[in-house]
Amino acid sequence: RYVAICNPLRYAAIMTNKMVIKLTVSAWGVAFVLVGILLGLTIRLNRCRTMITNPFCDNASLFKLSCESVFINNVYGLTFTVVLFTASIGSIVLTYTKITVVCLTSKNKTLNSKALKTCSTHLFVYLIMFLCGMLIIILHRFPQYSDYRKLSAILFHIIPGSLNPIIYGVQSKEIKKFLSNLLQSRKILPSL
């Protein structure tokens, strides 16, 4: 988004196939290493319980099955989460700040409108996923709220996925026109 908005004429030169492959391999490589370490720390634990109290099996639920100290796992897991979220949010804030500066200094209304539409929807979807994910992480720390954690774990998989097509679809002219026609026809029908 940053390159497309801030350097649109250089986009093809910057975002080559080679660059896309580098970015993809970097993202997947870092994820595999960090998750591999997390799984390695989890596998080493002996289990003395068998019931997972979540609707699905996640790493924090596996920690709760162990009778051993999970201090190292918790420290690594929290550090992993903080680093991942900080890097993610930091890169978004940095690039969106640069995009905002370009939009404020540019007199091109079309560019500003497109940038605002693209960035606002992306930011909105990201914030929904971030808040849903953080809620689960926070609720894992409070065993007395296990029912809320179960509900939030289910909603984490339903809400962002359900809202994505709505949030991105509202930008489509055809969908806007359809919704506008639908709402106008509903206003006409009750008066008949």
Score class of each variant (00 low, 15 high):
residue 7 N to F: 11
residue 162 S to W: 11
residue 61 S to Y: 04
residue 169 G to V: 02
residue 31 A to L: 13
residue 5 I to C: 00
residue 164 N to I: 14
residue 84 L to P: 03
residue 70 V to Y: 08
residue 72 I to F: 14
residue 31 A to P: 03
residue 153 A to D: 02
residue 177 K to P: 06
residue 42 T to L: 04
residue 49 R to C: 05
residue 116 L to C: 10
residue 111 L to D: 15
residue 179 L to P: 02
residue 21 I to A: 11
residue 39 L to N: 14
residue 176 K to A: 07
residue 22 K to W: 14
residue 142 F to T: 08
residue 166 I to S: 03
residue 121 T to L: 04
residue 2 Y to N: 06
residue 129 M to V: 09
residue 62 L to N: 08
residue 104 L to M: 12
residue 115 A to Y: 00
residue 72 I to H: 07
residue 125 V to F: 07
residue 7 N to A: 11
residue 6 C to Y: 01
residue 132 C to N: 06
residue 146 S to M: 09
residue 31 A to T: 13
residue 33 V to G: 04
residue 71 F to S: 07
residue 100 T to Y: 08
residue 160 P to F: 01
residue 31 A to S: 15
residue 63 F to E: 07
residue 70 V to W: 13
residue 162 S to F: 14
residue 139 L to I: 04
residue 187 K to P: 01
residue 8 P to R: 13
residue 81 T to C: 07
residue 114 K to M: 06
residue 161 G to L: 05
residue 181 N to M: 14
residue 76 Y to A: 00
residue 50 T to E: 15
residue 99 I to K: 00
residue 174 E to V: 10
residue 24 T to I: 05
residue 69 S to C: 03
residue 48 C to I: 15
residue 42 T to N: 06
residue 79 T to N: 08
residue 157 H to S: 06
residue 171 Q to A: 08
residue 167 I to G: 01
residue 38 L to T: 05
residue 123 L to A: 08
residue 24 T to W: 10
residue 19 M to S: 14
residue 94 L to S: 08
residue 164 N to A: 12
residue 88 S to N: 06
residue 53 T to Y: 13
residue 26 S to N: 11
residue 77 G to Q: 07
residue 11 Y to Q: 08
residue 120 S to P: 01
residue 63 F to A: 15
residue 29 G to Y: 10
residue 188 I to P: 02
residue 137 I to K: 13
residue 125 V to R: 00
residue 100 T to L: 10
residue 119 C to I: 09
residue 175 I to W: 08
residue 25 V to H: 10
residue 142 F to L: 07
residue 1 R to L: 09
residue 10 R to F: 04
residue 41 L to S: 05
residue 76 Y to E: 00
residue 35 V to K: 12
residue 84 L to G: 10
residue 77 G to E: 04
residue 154 I to P: 00
residue 127 L to M: 05
residue 82 V to T: 05
residue 54 N to I: 01
residue 84 L to T: 12
residue 148 Y to S: 09
residue 115 A to S: 03
residue 73 N to V: 09
residue 100 T to E: 07
residue 29 G to S: 07
residue 101 V to S: 10
residue 96 Y to A: 01
residue 75 V to C: 13
residue 33 V to L: 11
residue 48 C to P: 02
residue 87 A to F: 11
residue 123 L to R: 02
residue 82 V to L: 15
residue 45 L to P: 03
residue 84 L to I: 12
residue 55 P to T: 05
residue 182 L to A: 14
residue 153 A to K: 00
residue 66 S to H: 01
residue 135 L to F: 06
residue 5 I to K: 00
residue 126 Y to N: 06
residue 192 L to V: 14
residue 100 T to P: 00
residue 98 K to N: 09
residue 158 I to S: 04
residue 74 N to S: 06
residue 11 Y to F: 09
residue 180 S to D: 09
residue 167 I to V: 14
